[in-house]
């Protein structure tokens, strides 16, 4: 195709958008709605992923020594655990810290109770020493737990395997749901774009029939519709990115009021999201227009006496 042809057809595609502006606005509107949902799914997914990875980083196993273990022995046990290959870090929890942690979890009103249990002795005397252990690779969880169990003075381990698995399952669920939502919305967007193009095509039936009669190739006829689809997609992408920015800021501000949340900053994902929306717009625009016009173009008859 010659360049001047291409330029002419691009202009025709843009004219189509303006000529059918109501339909264009409607389809951009629905596309924006689809993309907003998709964007929301992506942002949710990104944020959940962030929360989960933070949780995973903080994922620790509490190892407790036997009741009669001295502080020195507990420290030795901690050093032995630290030397295990899959252990990232260890942290010693004294009896006093243990009680404070318990009071923090259960509430200040229980502080007296713990004093009573201590029977006037050293604070937290009834508690074992604790060692907080974090792992390098959660996949080697079971082996590492066995290795820790074998260390002298280790009495029991607060096994958080279930929590870990729940975290991983939750992430997988979010990812799967995200992919499903994106897939469904992609199909919806495709149908919407295809229908808009079909209406434009119907409006330009006369023109198409003349084009065919005077010897236009199918690509020549198709290109303005493809351009129309792509431009609609890109307009929707730009609008969605802007809207999503506003909505995201509001939602994050509201959530931060009720809980301490370190949300992913919009700026760090904005280009990625815009790219995704543009890609979605371009792909749906191309496929949608090709689908709607393909059927019409394959039909060689009917254009001569189409009306």
């Amino acid at each position: 195709m010659k360049f001047r042809n291409f330029r002419y057809l691009v202009v025709e595609g843009l004219k189509n958008i303006w000529t059918n502006r109501l339909m264009s606005i409607a389809s951009v509107g629905v596309l924006v709605a689809c993309m907003l949902l998709m964007g929301a799914a992506v942002l949710l997914s990104v944020n959940v992923e962030r929360v989960l990875s933070t949780l995973q980083d903080q994922n620790v196993v509490m190892v407790y020594t036997a009741d009669d273990t001295s502080e020195a022995d507990a420290m030795i046990a901690m050093q032995q655990i630290q030397q295990l290959s899959n252990v990232q870090s260890v942290d010693f929890v004294s009896k006093e810290e243990g009680v404070e942690s318990l009071i923090q979890d259960m509430g200040e009103e229980y502080a007296d109770l713990f004093e009573f249990v201590d029977e006037g002795g050293e604070k937290g005397s009834f508690l074992p020493y604790g060692i907080r252990v974090s792992f390098v690779d959660l996949a080697q969880y079971d082996q590492t737990i066995e290795q820790i169990r074998a260390v002298e003075h280790v009495d029991h381990i607060n096994d958080s395997r279930e929590l870990t698995m729940q975290i991983i399952n939750m992430r997988n669920l979010v990812t799967t749901a995200g992919v499903c939502i994106v897939g469904l919305l992609f199909i919806t967007a495709l149908v919407i774009i295809a229908n808009t193009i079909k209406i434009t095509m119907h409006n330009r039936k006369l023109e198409i029939s003349i084009m065919k009669a005077v010897g236009a190739t199918n690509n020549f006829i198709r290109l303005p519709f493809v351009i129309e689809g792509i431009v609609l997609g890109i307009i929707a992408a730009a609008l969605t990115t802007g809207l999503l920015y506003g909505v995201y800021r509001l939602v994050v501000a509201q959530l931060q009021r009720v809980m301490s949340l370190q949300a992913v900053p919009f700026g760090s994902v904005v280009w990625w999201l815009f790219g995704l929306f543009c890609l979605m717009g371009v792909v749906t625009g191309c496929i949608g227009s090709v689908i709607s016009i393909g059927k019409y173009l394959r039909k060689e008859g009917s254009e001569f006496r189409a009306f």
Binding site: K212, A213, V214, G215, A216, T217, N218, F304
Partner: peptide, 11 residues
């Protein structure tokens, strides 16, 4: 299309 370019149609 190339065949049709060799002819003119009046409707």
């Amino acid at each position: 299309p190339y065949l049709r370019r060799t002819m003119g149609i009046v409707f």
